[in-house]
Design a protein around this nucleic acid. Structure first.
Lengths: 230, 230
DNA sequence: GTCTATATCTGGATAGAC
DNA sequence: GTCTATCCAGATATAGAC
């Protein structure tokens, strides 16, 4: 199985790239026009936002908290974020965007590579790949995934719908992949297996600190999930 | 395996009993002294609170929302709840209380009954019982469990600590039970299995509507989890 | 581009009539 | 026991100086 480090390299997932992509997506909404400054400040703002939001929840985090943590003034903050609601929106919009921009581009290339040198069935490989990929991405974007899950409902109906659509979409994809590997399952069993897989994937980013404490790395966890599901 | 209906009967878990216990625990903090009135209003208040809190989150739910939903005045509300924070506290305190009061009393009786008529090992039966029991309780108290999980961090440090302790306690119990059934597991594997079990248990009350849509009942789900873990 | 100062509003909480 | 009216802290958001 591909290692987490290889995966990041293959998809060019570096810290610098991440924030550059984030800036690129939201450029139009941000008052500050010099990219270098903007990217650095966005990183500062959102890293602190994730931390505060993790500790007390987005709704209870005030923009004063955030301005204190970033050592920016309230006015300064507002030239980046537009409004508090928009902060949440920016995160929710970014996840599907990054997936499109970065990860899906490398999908074909990868599945070809795999096909050539394996004895496992193609369907099984596709499922493995999906699971592995999900764990690796959610490892790289752990605070983002955590935020998206925990704060989906605390914002406007538009965001809520987007989050639900993302969720339903993942479920659909996963269900199709599992169905091919377990063709004998009836409808309910397929559903249970799909839910189980999603729970295991969620557990990784919702309870990351616990896994860290036990020294379990992404590769080991991916292997475990694959064994349980396939 | 015991059915959900039998379980409720055995532990005398009825809707009326539930709210009576709730009133009993918090009697001292409530201004209203006639039990009949108080119990009915508490039910009204907390059922609406769970609904609002599920939809927009506890932090964004205002007491004005709650007063509108319950058709009570703000002043009226305050004679039951003391403060907004106390509302959350009352829920978090109730869960371990009810477990003590109602469920644990029937534990010995049950494990004896099981022992007599089974070919499975005692350790395995204990684990089965724990899983089944957890799913049945969280079925009966679904809104309570959902609230406790999603809103644990949005309240005072005292509550947060209580929620974390409850969580750690469940983990410990479960881990011990699993260890006896899978004595060959190393430390990491035991941990992964325990986490998996907790994820599956959580999934039941976090995503209850999805299971409902597929017509999966508590018995089926309990059976599925037991098969996966044992 | 960043800051200070401030306008405006919302929501938790209480006092006191009925 | 329940309601109306009100207080006031604290939050978002903006205007305008530097």
């Amino acid at each position: 199985m591909e290692s987490y480090a290889d995966f990041k390299q293959r998809c060019q997932l570096t810290d610098a790239n991440l924030w550059a992509h984030f800036y690129q997506l939201h450029q139009s909404k941000i008052d500050i026009k010099k990219p270098k400054i903007a990217v650095a400040k966005l990183k500062l703002i959102f890293q602190n936002m994730f931390k505060l939001s993790h500790d007390k929840g987005f709704a209870l985090m005030t923009l004063r908290d955030l301005s204190r943590a970033t050592e920016m003034s309230l006015g300064g903050l507002y030239s980046y974020i537009g409004s508090k609601e928009q902060v949440a929106l920016m995160v929710h919009e970014f996840l599907p965007y990054l997936y499109q921009e970065v990860v899906s581009k490398h999908l074909d290339e990868m599945s070809n590579k795999v096909e050539a040198r394996t004895i496992q069935s193609k369907d099984e490989q596709a499922l493995r790949l999906f699971i592995m990929q999900h764990i690796y991405i959610s490892e790289f974007l752990q605070p983002w995934f955590f935020f998206a899950f925990m704060e989906a409902k605390y914002t406007s109906p538009a965001i809520k719908k987007m989050a639900l659509d993302n969720e339903a979409n993942t479920h659909e994809q996963l269900s199709k992949l599992i169905k091919k590997c377990h063709s004998k399952d009836n409808k309910q069993r397929l559903f249970l297996r799909t839910m189980e897989c999603k729970s295991l994937l969620q557990s990784w980013y919702l309870k990351r600190p616990l896994y860290k404490k036990q020294n379990i790395n992404p590769e080991q966890y991916a292997q475990y999930v694959i064994n349980q599901i396939i």
